[in-house]
């Protein structure tokens, strides 16, 4: 379709992927008890899905992030896992870059993207093999790194009433003595993405 909004298509694909990825990270990194997850198939691979309040929270978060991705203003989406004292122990960084405007020519292109996202999901599902165990009682938050000053993007991100956004604290962003664990890079015509983990050396 000629009238497809390119930015919207990328944002739809990416937010759907991020939702699956966040659920899987929370499962694999044992942030929530495994009993509250349900096995599902996405991208033709087994994934884990949450229901209830937690699922709603993740959906609301991504619904707000979507307008930034649509306008190519989100540089990174980061899932931060924090210990009981709210200090980050792991940061799953999705670094996003979108090429200049182009039209989506065929379904083959989208199917290719899906294959690349599938590979990324598979990599997340086995990432516990390369990461140290987290301490008990961890929580998480999702951060969005914007290309422009965050305050300029505040209106765009605040699309849900009663789901306000704020500028992140230095404490949640900064992690001392972290090592970098690259997980996967994907390059397609419509989207480039790097996924890596910053892991605190002494958790």
């Amino acid at each position: 379709r000629q009238d497809l909004n390119f930015g919207q298509v990328v944002a739809d694909i990416l937010c759907e992927f991020l939702e699956v990825a966040i659920h899987l990270i929370l499962y694999v990194r044992d942030v929530y008890p495994s009993g509250i997850f349900q096995k599902r198939k996405k991208y033709n691979v087994p994934v884990q899905e949450l229901n209830g309040n937690l699922n709603q929270y993740i959906q609301d978060t991504l619904h707000c992030v979507k307008p930034l991705i649509e306008k190519n203003e989100a540089e990174k989406v980061v899932v931060v896992i924090m210990d009981k004292e709210h200090h980050p122990v792991e940061r799953f960084v999705f670094e996003i870059s979108q090429p200049p405007l182009l039209s989506i020519s065929s379904e083959t292109l989208l199917s290719h993207v899906e294959q690349l996202l599938r590979a990324m999901i598979l990599k997340i599902s086995v990432c516990d093999a390369v990461l140290d165990n987290n301490p008990p009682g961890c929580t998480f938050t999702v951060l969005v790194h914007t290309r422009e000053a965050a305050t300029r993007n505040m209106e765009k991100v605040q699309v849900i009433k009663d789901f306000p956004w704020i500028v992140a604290d230095e404490q949640e962003v900064h992690m001392e003595e972290a090592k970098l664990v690259p997980l996967k890079t994907m390059t397609s015509d419509i989207l480039k993405m790097q996924l890596y983990v910053e892991e605190k050396t002494r958790k």
């Binding site: 209830g52 993740i58 929580t139 969005v144 914007t146 789901f163 956004w165 992140a168 962003v173």
Partner: peptide
């Protein structure tokens, strides 16, 4: 781009592990 000036987060925190478990107990 150091510090938090380019970084946004939701004000509300997600439910904790304990809160989720408490909800399950109530069911």
């Amino acid at each position: 781009k150091s510090g938090g000036t380019h970084i946004l987060k939701p004000l509300m925190s997600p439910p904790t592990r304990e809160e989720i478990l408490a909800t399950l107990m109530d069911l």
